[in-house]
Simulated scan of single mutants.
Amino acid sequence: MSFFKKLRESVSKTTETVTHKFMSGLSKTSSSLVGAMDAVFTRNKIDEELYEELEDILIGADVGVDTTMEIVDRLRQEVKERRIKDPAELKPLMSEILVELLQGDDGETVVNVQEGALTIFLFVGVNGVGKTTTIGKLAHHYKQQGKKVLLAAGDTFRAGAIEQLEVWGERVGVDVIRHQAGSDPAAVMYDAVQAAKARGCDILLCDTAGRLQNKVNLMEELKKVHRVIGREVPDAPHESLLVLDATTGQNAMQQAKMFNDATNLTGIVLTKMDGTAKGGIALAIRRELEVPVKWIGLGEKMDDLQPFDAEQFVHALFGKDIEAEVAEG
């Protein structure tokens, strides 16, 4: 077998695996959201009642009122411009609109990894959303790519958080920079950055506290951490990622707004997407905050945290196999 044939088969197998993960992980949202839409798309005609039903379905899937209005308005406009009469033609059109909305003006979502230099990721979010687990899975992801990874236990408010990160460090096979519980998180970050530089690390993944009992203190603490990292490595952190539990729906949107004000988020990690039928929150966050979703949790396995892909996401919702479409095209 030629090298190029092996390469094509390898790429094809990887694409199939990722497509399957998206379709499997988003099955609850797909059956709820698109299942309800299918009933609308089989109506006899496109009328005001059809648009109102679509609005109810989207809002019910946590897409949010403003984002829902924009989607339906764009659908109306496209129907008018393309002179569409058959409701069955709305399904691929809706798919097209959702992909464009998720991609935003930037197009493809890219994670900002510095080639040949230290890349620092700062993770924020409330307790219980899967922040530490996300960090562990990303450590595994980058180690699999041959990168040297280091973890920083910046959630010094909870001793359990430090221990949990150390468990992940042992599991993945990467070191953790830690201080004692109650220490200054900024001091942990300073030591972690120095250690990452000294050891020639490629990736530094930084955990932070997620307590909300005193929002003012937490946000000031995050700003300080941000300043310390930026002082030691210009333009860092290269990614400030907010981890959100997709099952909390619109509550996740409120958290996103709060953290975005404090840390200038570069992206969102949506965890537990496989556990919700209301995955429309991804659309609401992308449009209302103008912050891209960069990673998505589609299950509990180590490799179930996947880079977010708008086309994979939407095609998984609508039950389409991207490879089949590409082959046909």
Rank of each mutant, 00 (worst) to 15 (best):
I97G: 05
M69W: 10
Q250I: 08
Q164Y: 10
A39I: 14
D321V: 02
S12P: 00
A159S: 15
V243T: 12
L98F: 12
D38C: 01
C206G: 06
I97C: 09
V126G: 04
V326N: 09
V63A: 10
V225I: 15
M23R: 14
K257I: 09
T247Q: 12
H238N: 04
Q213K: 10
K45L: 14
V99M: 10
F318E: 09
L150C: 14
G280P: 11
L165S: 03
H141A: 03
Q77E: 14
A327E: 12
P87K: 04
L241A: 12
D321I: 00
K148R: 15
V172T: 08
H179D: 11
N260M: 04
T208E: 05
S27F: 07
A39R: 15
G160W: 10
A88T: 02
K278I: 04
A310G: 02
V110K: 15
D261L: 14
A316H: 06
P87F: 06
T248G: 00
H226P: 01
D207E: 01
G329K: 14
L75I: 10
R178C: 09
I203T: 10
E96G: 00
T134D: 00
I322N: 03
E288H: 11
G299E: 04
N127S: 03
R82A: 08
N44A: 15
A209T: 06
A88K: 13
D106M: 13
G128A: 11
D261E: 15
D304T: 03
V124K: 01
A282C: 07
E55F: 06
D191C: 05
D321A: 12
D86N: 09
M23H: 03
M1R: 12
L151W: 05
K85C: 05
S95A: 08
E96K: 13
V111G: 02
T276C: 00
G267M: 13
R231V: 06
P185T: 03
V233T: 11
Q77K: 15
F123G: 01
L205E: 06
D235R: 04
M302T: 13
V233Q: 12
D175L: 08
K223Y: 09
Q194C: 09
G299V: 05
K5L: 13
G107Q: 08
L50A: 04
Q77H: 15
L283V: 13
I71L: 07
L150F: 10
A262S: 10
T17P: 08
K137R: 10
E89G: 03
S10Y: 13
F308N: 04
D303Y: 14
E163W: 03
Q77F: 05
G136H: 01
I322S: 07
K223R: 13
A181P: 00
R74L: 10
P234W: 03
V176W: 06
Q250W: 03
H226A: 01
L244G: 02
G329D: 02
F3R: 14
A209Q: 08
L298Q: 12
M189R: 09
V326F: 05
Y190C: 07
G297A: 09
A161R: 09
V79D: 09
V124D: 02
S183D: 11
A153V: 07
A198Y: 06
